[in-house]
Amino acid sequence: MAVPAVDGASDAEYERNLLQRIQAGDKTACAECIDLHSAGVYRLALRMVGSPEEAEDIVQETFLNAFRTIDSFEGRSRLSTWLYRIAYNTALMRLRKKQPLYVSIDPPAADDEEEITPMQLFDWCCLPEDDFQSNEARSELERAIAELPETLRAVFVLRELEGLSTEETAQVLNVTISNVKVRLHRARLWLRERLSGYFTELAHAAQG
């Protein structure tokens, strides 16, 4: 389905109109909403739960819930923020059911309260660009993102991969703006630390 281009000042107006049409039970508007927002909802769900099948289920639950409760949405946030919030809560409930006593034993372990002190101090930026763009390096990065502590991962995905603002991220996760900033910083340091292990080893191997 073709989705109308929305940008700038027309964005808010388009969204208000779309919302009114969904609230009036217009199925074409629901389809339009899905085509606009399902990709982002899917990416968030996938990063949270790790399984494409389960992420697909979460997308389905998110839109089912959203359309069922659309009358309670007052438009105080963007529609996308509200959908991310539903998807995040749905993913979280599934994680809680699966891993109620989950404790990571893999270093560097950290939660959102723990300071992250850089331990890896080798500058691996000197590696050839091919080493950063290899499938192996990308897999390593994907694994690192998947292993981010859960509270850091949600902030990281919304801010850095989905491009939400600090304020929007805070709304989705129901945390303060300063909490989003702190968690994003810790997520970045955590990922740097985690990737440094891999790239430092690569650099040392190249040096013989």
């Binding site: 199925k27 899905i34 839109f63």
Partner: peptide, 8 residues
């Protein structure tokens, strides 16, 4: 997804 939500 569209089938599950009975959408065109």
């Amino acid at each position: 997804l569209f089938a599950a939500l009975s959408l065109p």
